[in-house]
Structure formats: C-alpha cells, structure tokens
Nucleic acid binder design. Structure first.
Lengths: 221, 221
DNA sequence: CGATAGTTCCAAAGATCTGTGGAATAGTGT
DNA sequence: ACACTATTCCACAGATCTTTGGAACTATCG
C-alpha cells in the first residue's frame, strides 16, 4: 500500500476548494453568483476588476468545482455549480462571523451604525401573514427575477428614493437583500426611516433564507 | 459612505478562513482535530511534518478562528473551535467529492479497490438494534475515548490482526473510522474478510455521524 | 535555580498566487 | 470573408505562502 504518497495527494486536491475560497475577490464573485447566473463582463464590473483578472478567478472557481458555465451565443454565463456550494459558502460566512472578531468589526464598519432594527425569518413570515408588514426586495431587479421571497415586491436600492410614493406610509416595511453582509438593506432602512416610514430589515438575506429551506418564488420552477 | 474600500476589506478577512482551508497539510491537521484535541508534536508526527511547520500551520488555522488552544502544563493542546467548524469541514469534503471528479479518482486510488461492502448510518443502527451486527471502531484508541458510536468496541487498526479472536466469527461486523476519506475502515474490512469474517463498513465516518446529529458516547458529557 | 520538553518566533530560499497588458480564440451579424 | 464582442491564453513583475534551521520563550521538575 503506497498510501504514504496517495493521502497527501488526495488532500491537496481537496485543498483546491479551500484555495478557491481563499481570496476576497473570488468570494465577492461567489456572493454574486449565489444570487443568479452572471456573464464575465458583468461580474468584472460588479467586483471592480478588469475582465482578464475576473476570467482568471472564474477559472479557479471552475477548477474547484464551485461554478459551472453555459454558453449563450457569444457570452458565457457562470453559475453556482450546486446547492451544496451555496451551503458551503453560507457555512464559511457563518464560521467567519462567529469565530473571527475582526470580521465582525469590519462588517460593522462596512454596514454602518447599529441603528436599524432587524427581524428573523420566522418573524418576517409571521408579520407578513398577519398583514402587518409588506416585504421589499432591494436587490437589483435581475436578481429579484431569478428568485425572491414570496409576495416581496422589487424596488432596487438605487431606485428606492425616487419610488417612495409606491410604499404605504402607515404599514411596516421589511426589506432584505443578498445576505448577512449585503449593505443594501441597511441603507434602505435608514433611507426609509429618514422619510418617515417604519422600516425594519431581515437579519440575513436570501442566501440564508434559501439554505434554511424556506420557499422561494422564481419564474420557471 | 466610503464603502468602496470597506467591502473588499471585509471579504479579504473572510477569505482568511478559505485560505486556512486551502492547504492539504492543514486539512490533514483539521481532519485529526475533528476527532479529538491534539498536541503540536502529535500532529507533526501524524501529518509527517516537522514541528516548526506544524506550529506555523496551526497559527494560520487559529487566526482564521478554526481552532483554539488550551495549555496543559508545558504542552499546548489544539482543538476544533466549534461545531460550526466541523460542519464547514464536512461541507468542504462534500463539495470536493461531489463536484470534483479528480478528488473521486484520487480517493479511489488511496482507499483501494471497490471491493468492500458499505452501509448507511440508518442501516447500521437497524442491524445493531436487531442484534444482527456488532460495531467496531478501528481508530486509535485515544480517538475512541474522546467520542464513539454507542455500543461500538474499540480495536485500533494496528491491533486488529492480533485481536481477531475477540471477534464473533458468525456475526456481521460493521467497522467505521474517521470519515469518508479514512482508509482504516477499508483496510479493516479487507483484513477481516480475508480471515473469514463477514465484515462491512459504515459508508462515511464519525465526522458525518456527528454532523447528522446522531448520538455519540463520550466519557464526560 | 538550572536543566528539560514543548512550542513559538525569526529570517531566508524557493514555490505559488495575483493582476496586468497584449495576443489569440470563438461566436454573431453584415 | 470582415468587423465586432465576449472571453480566454500568455508572459511577466510583484506579492504572498511554505518550509526549514536556529534562537527564544514558558512551564515543569529535580
């Protein structure tokens, strides 16, 4: 049994998955791809990278089995390879936020002051089914179209200020976005409350919603 | 809002967790630490590394929040930081094995031919409670002592051949070890069957058993 | 208090990773 | 076939990671 050589080789291969998750820019890409399939140029712009670099990162993710591709004419669309990958990413975020104090500190800096009220998934469901609250999805509309929380309406963050009149002034508004570290929902709650609405936000986002096995609405399914 | 700089910083911090999982030797260390707390010298020997390198890897894991330490006299014992970390490692193995064909191939090379019968966790429980089978834990006895499947007996792999007389020749024997990629159980089944026993193995190991929420026996708990 | 065992710190060499322009490739539409 | 768009391949410079001996710490024990 020549296992003295085979075991390190096996673990080195598994480590490719870890390596793929070991770069901030790649995590930003995964963060987007968990929401919906994206083309390379879109990802490059969203992550603030040039296209060549983005392509290289995507190759890394692909070799690690985390994403897959489909050709659509001249563009190539990358998507998350399976639900197991989304679960892995979610678990990575969980570990990072619970085990690393620095992550928590950086998250607070990024998301802003702790001045917004958050509610749990169950609480959201409860308030919505009681007719107490309406749910607003502040992600880009393309992500809303890919999948969203049932009954949520789509008002992308960058349109929110100009579409305030569509919202009820006397009903609670629950906003949500991509995940725990998505800043849209924090910003949205601040904006809404500044305009006299009663807004709260889902504590995490649609990633965690999905991983918890909650139902989603999506066009084809 | 200067989030243009804060978001990359946040993801770069989270990526430390990925980086920590992005090295084969560190994964081998995590694989051991999931079983029980270990001292640095023990880990160095088990992973085939010199102590300095092992210490450096452990620092990396610690900074990523994956392991924690306790001092015990002059030795420092490393342990997995939380169940969430074990779950993350388990999910990493799941993704690697389901999404990367090369991992599967390397696993087959390492674990040997596909000549051993495997059974599921539920099947193990069924056969044991029906009195059909006995369960043998072939991990090192120290790991058995830390936690094991209820009713399992401990016969470490390197003692198995000399302790065959302790086993019932006419009853099914189910062996298990650390996890999916642990070779002990495969080798044990081959050895037992070669000596005329009827042996099968648990498809994965105690890591997956624990992550599935199955009960464990351990001295203090 | 000096000797010892276990661990970490330090510095340096070699390997690997990251980001970048420029060139190459693969479909689309004219 | 040609121009055009989206993506990937290539090569290189700069940064980061890995491994290793040797020195420095820290708790224990005689």
């Amino acid at each position: 049994m020549p296992e003295r050589r085979l075991r390190p080789a096996l673990y080195e291969l598994i480590a490719l998955v870890g390596k793929a998750l070991g770069n901030g820019k790649r995590l930003e890409l995964v963060d987007l791809l968990v929401q919906r399939p994206y083309a390379v140029v879109e990802l490059a712009q969203a992550a603030g990278l040039n296209v060549t670099t983005t392509s290289a990162h995507l190759q890394t993710l692909k070799h690690a089995g985390l994403v897959s591709t489909t050709r659509d004419g001249t563009t190539i669309r990358y998507r998350i390879a399976s639900d197991a990958v989304a679960a892995l990413y979610g678990q990575l975020l969980t570990v990072a936020s619970t085990q690393m104090a620095e992550v928590d500190a950086a998250a607070r800096r990024y998301l802003g002051p702790d001045d917004t009220e958050e509610i749990s998934r169950d609480e959201l469901l409860r308030r919505v089914s009681a007719g107490q609250a309406i749910v607003v999805d502040v992600r880009p509309s393309s992500e809303y179209e890919a999948a969203h929380i049932p009954k949520a309406v789509s008002i992308p963050m960058d349109e929110l200020e100009s579409r305030l009149s569509e919202l009820p002034p006397d009903q609670e508004i629950v906003v949500y976005c991509r995940g725990v570290y998505c800043s849209f929902s924090h910003d949205a709650v601040r904006l809404l409350n500044a305009h006299g609405f009663h807004a709260t936000r889902l504590a995490d986002g649609i990633l965690e919603w999905q991983l918890a096995g909650q139902p989603l609405s999506s066009p084809i399914r």
